[in-house]
Design a protein around this nucleic acid. Structure first.
Length: 275
DNA sequence: CAGCGTGTTGAGGA
DNA sequence: TTCCTCAACACGCT
């Protein structure tokens, strides 16, 4: 469940381990299924002897820019993990999907227990016009993301606010955990229709604030997700509702309720977030 | 054991 | 058409 803060953390860690400037020597592909728009032979020939010149986040995607104007796009989906490791130290071999052998004895390894992750390779020049990439909406950390934007885009929607916030074409990077947290802090019931929301300004402000806070704690480590072998996210200690069914609300002591919204486990306080 | 949980897509429905 | 719902994907964990 890597969401915006976890993906941001992965990128920060790769950068602090000085991945930028390293050169891809060769690629070992153990699960070709993850390669969505390129064959194993093609990714091999396109990436070999190319330098990694930058890494950026786009929504929950990780963009790895190469020196030959190609960009590798990783999406971790549920449980993908991207670790920069020393060549001789492997995490869990069974879950290793693909590895990029780099110089300086480093390897960029992609692990995924469920094999849901995706890897695309695009021309950097046309990257942002790829349908796959172009439909990703504004980032909650973007200055232009505010109450007015949310109000404009949501006013005609008839689906519950939780469904809207998870829609990556409305706003990018928010997933199941942070969505519940943002709605709790905003006092908004997950099933409320956008038309009944009093303050989109507060909702937008809370979204930005909570995601930034989660980044400062290096994300949330839950179940089988972690951003790095060595670093544990600490934000799970600051969750108010997610995963806390039947536990007392940290604001009013009412029992936290769990329901399903669009098939997603949804936690909220029935008193703080009334319909 | 059987079914949950997780993000996204795309088939099908209204 | 446009908007919305939900099964499917894979598999470790309970």
């Amino acid at each position: 469940m890597p969401e915006l803060p976890e993906v941001e953390t992965v990128i920060n860690l790769l950068k602090s381990n000085e991945i930028i400037g390293l050169t891809i020597k060769e690629i070992n592909i153990y699960k070709p299924k993850l390669l969505k728009n390129i064959s194993p032979a093609n990714i091999q020939s396109i990436c070999s002897n190319k330098k990694i010149i930058d890494i950026k986040r786009l929504g929950k995607n990780i963009l790895v820019f190469l020196s030959n104007t190609k960009t590798i796009v990783f999406h971790l989906r549920m449980e993908g993990k991207l670790f920069l490791e020393n060549k001789n130290v492997e995490w869990i071999k069974k879950h290793l999907m693909i590895e990029f052998i780099l110089n300086k004895n480093k390897v960029l390894r992609y692990y995924d227990t469920r094999m849901f992750g995706t890897i695309h390779v695009f021309d950097t020049t046309t990257l942002y016009s790829q349908p796959h990439i172009a439909k990703i909406a504004i980032d909650p950390l973007d200055k232009k993301f505010n109450g007015r934007y949310l109000k404009n885009i949501l006013s005609s929607k008839t689906t519950p606010i939780k469904t809207c916030l998870l829609d990556q074409t409305v706003v990018s990077g928010i997933g199941n955990i942070y969505c519940d947290e943002i709605l709790f802090q905003s006092g908004i019931h997950p099933l409320i229709k956008p038309i009944n929301i009093q303050s989109f300004d507060m909702l937008a402000t809370n979204a930005t604030r909570i995601l930034k806070k989660a980044i400062s704690y290096k994300g949330t480590t839950v179940f089988s997700y972690r951003s790095s072998i060595h670093t544990t996210g600490e934000f799970q200690k600051h969750l108010f509702v997610y995963g806390r069914e039947n536990e007392p609300c940290l604001k009013c002591k009412t029992k936290i309720v769990k329901i399903k919204v669009n098939g997603r486990g949804t936690y909220f306080c029935p008193k703080c977030q009334h319909l």
